[in-house]
Design a binder for these strands. Structure first.
Length: 554
DNA sequence: TTGATGAAGTTTTTT
DNA sequence: ACTTCATCAA
């Protein structure tokens, strides 16, 4: 353990003054606003390192971090592990709001009575099919009920934690904020809320207006702002600053943070969406072929109704055989646990040395128990099984079509047993879904063997994501790309609340590290034959193109 | 059956 | 801003 004065940012990183101030605050709660690319996750990781390493979070107290997405929650935990090591990081709990609420409910379920009472074997899903079932939207309200009804439950939570981190706080809803208040208001627990009001694009889904100000007041939190943007090139920063001037003049970046002339901004107008699509596909081809931009570093962002607006450009990409991924269709097979299991098994079977696949496989196959002897028995059993199967697989490998690969998989899955397979994901409670995933995995591997005859190489490509990303602005939040295309920048498509649309535009623009390309058209045809009436006059009143105008490269 | 009128949806995550 | 769906009167 070290003294507070002796702490320096882990891994030799330097933080901007407000970030270091935020990382090392021990007296008060914090309301930290920070723009895109400011390093919010890094700051939280450094703060966790500070609190744990200086004993400001005193053993056995823990730090609780709450995020909205599973991804974000996992990333934060990983970053903390990297910064202060697994030992200290074991006292860092990173959950989503839903996971945190469910833990409270599961631990103190009997506290819920009357119409809130919950069966011990309750399930979550929609639609509600029986009294045993609750909705995702019930989790936070029920957790609030637990804490209101039971001082014991409330105390248990308060005793556990010295600090609470709240990520993407601008998206916090009414109920979520209520949970935070019931659990932590008027205690000596420090709260650190981090977010960006300029990126508040979930208002329509219930995100609380002015939640940072409310929080600062009700928790006596110190408001701080981080100005730096480490993500984007200077030219892009100046464009972002122009929008910031409109959204929140208080976080306008000083000139000295945007020195230089690097970065590209283009805006193109077309008569119809066919021309727009051909141009975009061609431009992407140039980036890939002539500038060696990795496919996954190129993104096409659309405000909404992606399947409608991006249909033509997807067709054009196919014509040029440029791989793309429509991120709205969340049917990404490579993240399915059952698919990963099959791929890892085949890699362990046919591959020469695949330590990563082997580790993942063993973590999954060997049940977690305290009993080390039992674990050893399981491990040896699986090692024996795979060793004997591998002998046969090496013979199979002599024929380049791998005739028996699926027999191996079938034997493997039979040995694991349905129960373990079903437990991989709640989706698989329906056996049909599990079967579907496994069949699709086989189909995909067969397909990939067509272009890559070496099975091990084909398998390595299975989760490889070398493809242009096509997604809505909302889904792009928190991501970054070397080159960003924002298509269909027509005033009419940004309907609804204008403040929120401006934020959405800002989110899109600020995803780009290097290159930003905006396109708009005079007439937009829909794939089903509808033709809009959008005309050139309207474009002169296009607020979004207006921001970009003065920064254009020709 | 048709046309007129009005309301709702469009941007999302979560065990 | 524009589509889709429900409802009602003719």
């Amino acid at each position: 353990m070290i003294n507070v004065e002796d702490w320096y940012p882990a891994d030799g990183l330097t933080l901007e003054p407000n970030a270091e101030r935020a990382a090392t605050e021990i007296e008060s709660s914090l309301a930290l606003t920070a723009g895109p690319g400011a390093g919010k996750t890094e700051m939280l990781a450094q703060r966790a390192d500070f609190l744990l390493r200086t004993g400001s979070c005193r053993y056995p107290k823990r730090i609780l971090a709450i995020s909205f997405k599973v991804d974000a929650s996992r990333n934060l935990k990983e970053r903390v592990q990297r910064r202060c090591g697994t030992e200290l990081a074991s006292r860092f709990d990173s959950y989503t709001f839903h996971a945190f609420a469910k833990r409270i409910i599961d631990r103190f379920r009997p506290v819920l009575t009357g119409e809130n009472s919950l069966a011990p074997d309750y399930t979550i899903g929609s639609p509600k099919v029986s009294g045993k079932q609750i909705d995702f939207s019930d989790l936070v309200p029920l957790a609030i009920q637990v804490l209101i009804n039971s001082p014991i439950a409330c105390n248990a939570i308060r005793q556990t934690y010295s600090d609470v981190f709240l990520d993407e706080f601008q998206d916090c809803t009414n109920k979520q904020y209520e949970l935070i208040k019931v659990a932590f208001q008027n205690t000596n627990i420090r709260l650190t809320a981090v977010g960006d009001t300029k990126q508040k694009i979930m208002g329509w889904a219930g995100a609380l207006d002015g939640v940072f100000a409310t929080f600062a007041e009700e928790f006596q939190a110190i408001p701080l702002n981080m100005y730096r943007n480490f993500r984007s090139k200077p030219k892009l920063l100046r464009l972002q600053n122009q929008i910031i001037l409109r959204l929140d003049p208080g976080s306008f970046m000083p000139e000295e943070l945007m020195v230089g002339n690097e970065g590209d901004i283009y805006s193109c107008s077309f008569n119809n969406c066919q021309q727009e699509a051909e141009f975009l596909a061609n431009q992407i081809n140039i980036w890939i072929k002539e500038e060696d931009t990795p496919l996954s570093e190129i993104a096409i962002l659309v405000s909404k109704q992606l399947d409608l607006y991006a249909a033509t450009v997807m067709t054009e990409l196919e014509k040029l055989t440029i791989p793309y991924r429509n991120e709205q269709q969340l049917q990404d097979l490579s993240v399915e646990p059952a698919a990963r299991l099959v791929v890892d098994y085949l890699l362990s079977l046919y591959g020469d040395r695949e330590p990563a696949a082997w580790t993942r496989l063993m973590n999954l196959l060997i049940p977690f128990t305290e009993d080390e002897e039992e674990q050893l028995i399981h491990r040896q059993d699986w090692q024996r099984f795979i060793k004997s199967e591998r002998k046969e697989a090496l013979r199979d490998q002599l024929d380049s079509s791998y005739p028996n690969r699926w027999d191996f998989v079938r034997r493997f899955l039979n040995k694991i047993g349905l129960q373990t397979l079903t437990a991989l994901s709640s989706d698989y409670e329906s056996q049909a879904r599990l079967r579907e995933v496994i069949v699709e995995t086989n189909t995909k591997i067969t397909g990939m063997l067509g272009s890559e005859p070496d099975l091990v190489k084909a398998l390595a490509k299975f989760s490889d994501d070398q493809a242009v990303r096509i997604l809505t602005i909302h889904k792009s939040k928190g991501l970054e790309f070397d080159a960003v295309i924002m298509m269909a920048i027509e005033q009419e498509i940004f309907f609804g609340d204008q403040d929120e649309n401006r934020c959405a535009f800002f989110v899109g623009v600020s995803r780009a590290k290097n290159k930003l390309l905006l396109t708009h058209v005079n007439q937009r045809a829909r794939p089903d034959g509808f033709t809009g009436r959008w005309n050139v006059q309207r474009h002169s009143q296009n607020e979004y193109l207006g921001y970009v105008h003065q920064f254009l490269d020709e």
